[in-house]
Nucleic acid binder design. Structure first.
Length: 524
RNA sequence: GGGCGCGUAGCUCAAUUGGCAGAGCAACUGACUCUUAAUCAGUAGGUUGUAGGUUCGAUUCCUACCGCGCUCACCA
């Protein structure tokens, strides 16, 4: 029998004894008029004398994080589970004296373990070491922890266990809880910001017959009754713009996207995206709006526009803006020789020579010369500029070749009215003036289809219904996507996306141990 | 998918050149009516990720597999 099985059996036995004391093993409710944090904050400055004369009556509930028995009295610490109680005022000490809780109450106390959930009623006092403590008059048993929690001062550090058993991670690692409380604040802040500006929150299909609105490989699924293959969406974009056609002229959605691609510190197969669309404005309008939204979110989450990012600090009040071409010139590596000139990006021959310059100087660069020159320019940007973009930076004007849904610049058709926001070496947002010319859109889809035929699985598919929708007339509009997980990483100093996703994707836990490997590799 | 690294008690970690698998916390028994990493005395806890191989002998060396991490590629 494994150790935790023994502990499990032992604690089940304790649970039976607790029931024998007249407590329910799994009671249904307990009145908690105020949280632990409320009492701690309200009486944090109260003196021992003050508490003795006032004797404030309290009733709280929480999980036991530590317990110390000394014969006929003992202490324990209760940890609040309330969202209102943040780090610093989540725990309160309780003092259980046999004389004060009666024989049965003390028997119950002796049967408690670290991890149990209990209710405590009594009055506040200060111990001789000065700690605000509840002098317990009645203990109520609420739930048993049958499995041992990790050790209390090293906590749980094994990353695999932390992700697989996030519930344990949340119990023992207060900073993890804080990150997810901040994530909630972030999403609330974005909703509030858009709601105040008369945006409508909508929900569009997660299962789509054509996975459109982005460049990515989709997950596939199947509906039995309709005998129909469906894709999990890679973006809500095309549906939200159908709603612009329908007359909802400010819409947004905060929801999951699914992309069947690699995992990494910035990538999880399902991730949360905010997308919003505003009619009668262009990329400049939504660029300003997005900057304001993110600045506000930083304030709401951290109470400041300053956010720690590793050994650096990101200031969400100080933004830079430059075009993609300007960024390439600005961050052009010295070792790669002379910087390109602005007008040289118009020449495919010169752009190809830029690639040569970079490769010769040892810059790593993923490029495909069969692709249009615009795609090459975008690759150059990623190779030379992205790693330098720590402070919030808006990069605008993207090549038409990599922007199949954006409006072109009137004076430069090879470039679109599109921008992306970078911070902490990550792309966190993408927006543009929405292409609303159905015939132009058809040509863009057709160009993508050619990419597909060349073997690019991720190129956009033709979406006839979307073109039909545009044919009814879509008002001019700007639209933006914001990567919520990545923004959350930046605001919580989390350096892997798995630390801001409660249950990140992992391989299934292994149950069998021998059968599947025993004869797998026998040499002849 | 490629490369590199890791896997020892419930948790956090040791184990000399290949030579009896250990500690702290958690757990159990006992003492203790202001402790807080409570203390004191004692007890128990292991198929060293899995399966093979080399060896008199493997936690240690080799192979494969499983899981995790980092990284590269694809991507937001």
């Amino acid at each position: 029998m494994a150790l935790d099985d023994k502990i499990y059996e032992l604690r089940r036995e304790k649970l039976k004894q607790i029931e024998a004391l007249g407590q329910r093993a799994y009671p249904t409710k307990y009145e908690v008029p105020h949280t632990i944090g409320y009492w701690r904050d309200s009486y944090k400055d109260a003196s021992a004398e003050q508490l003795d004369s006032e004797r404030p009556n309290v009733q709280v509930a929480g999980r036991i994080t530590g317990i110390r028995l000394m014969g006929k009295a003992g202490f324990a610490h209760l940890q609040s589970t309330s969202r209102r109680d943040r780090v610093g005022s989540r725990q309160i000490q309780i003092y259980v004296k046999k004389d004060a809780v009666s024989e049965k109450g003390f028997e119950l106390y002796k049967l408690l373990d670290i991890g149990d959930v209990i209710g405590a009623r009594g009055y506040l006092f200060r111990t001789k070491t000065g700690e605000l403590t509840i002098h317990v008059e009645e203990l109520t048993f609420l739930a048993k922890d049958l499995l041992p929690l990790p050790e209390k001062w090293h906590g749980l550090t094994d990353v695999e266990l932390r992700y697989r058993q996030r519930y344990v991670d949340l119990i023992v690692n207060p900073e993890v809880r804080e990150v997810f409380l901040k994530r909630t604040e972030l999403i609330k802040s974005m909703r509030r910001f858009l709601d105040e500006r008369w945006f409508i929150e909508v929900e569009t299909p997660m299962m789509q017959p054509i996975a459109g609105g982005a460049v990515a490989r989709p997950f596939m699924t199947h509906h039995n009754t309709l005998d129909m293959d469906l894709y999990l969406r890679i973006a809500p974009e095309l549906y939200l713009k159908r709603l612009l056609v329908g007359g909802f002229d400010r819409v947004y959605e905060i929801n999951r996207n699914f992309r069947n691609e690699g995992l990494g510190w910035r990538w999880n197969p399902e991730f949360t995206m905010l997308e919003f669309y505003q009619a009668y404005t262009d990329y400049r309008g939504v660029m300003d709006l997005t900057q304001e939204l993110i600045t506000q979110a930083a304030k709401d989450v951290n109470g400041s526009t300053q956010a720690k990012w590793g050994d650096q600090e990101i200031d969400w009040a100080k933004w830079q803006r430059m075009t993609m071409r300007e960024a390439i010139i600005k961050f052009w590596p010295e070792k790669a020789g002379a910087k390109p000139q602005l007008n040289e990006f118009a020449s495919p021959v010169i752009v190809k020579s830029m690639i040569g310059q970079l490769l010769n100087s040892g810059v790593k660069l993923a490029h495909d010369l069969a692709k249009p020159v615009g795609a090459t320019i975008a690759a150059i940007f990623e190779a030379v500029a992205e790693e330098h973009l720590t402070q919030p930076t808006i990069i605008y004007e993207f090549p038409t070749a990599v922007s199949p849904l954006s409006k072109q610049k009137p004076d430069e058709p090879d470039w679109t009215e599109r921008f992306e926001i970078f911070a902490g070496q990550m792309e966190i947002s993408n927006g543009f003036s929405e292409l609303n010319d159905p015939e132009d859109q058809r040509r863009r889809f057709e160009a993508q289809l050619k990419e597909r035929e060349r073997g690019d699985e991720e190129a956009h598919q033709m979406d006839e219904d979307y073109i039909r929708a545009l044919s009814y007339g879509m008002p001019p509009a700007g639209g933006v996507g914001v990567g919520v997980d990545r923004l959350c990483m930046l605001l919580t100093d989390s350096h892997t996306i798995r630390d801001v996703i409660l249950f990140p994707l992992l391989r299934p836990e292994k149950v069998a141990t021998t059968e599947d490997t025993g004869d797998a590799e026998k040499k002849p």
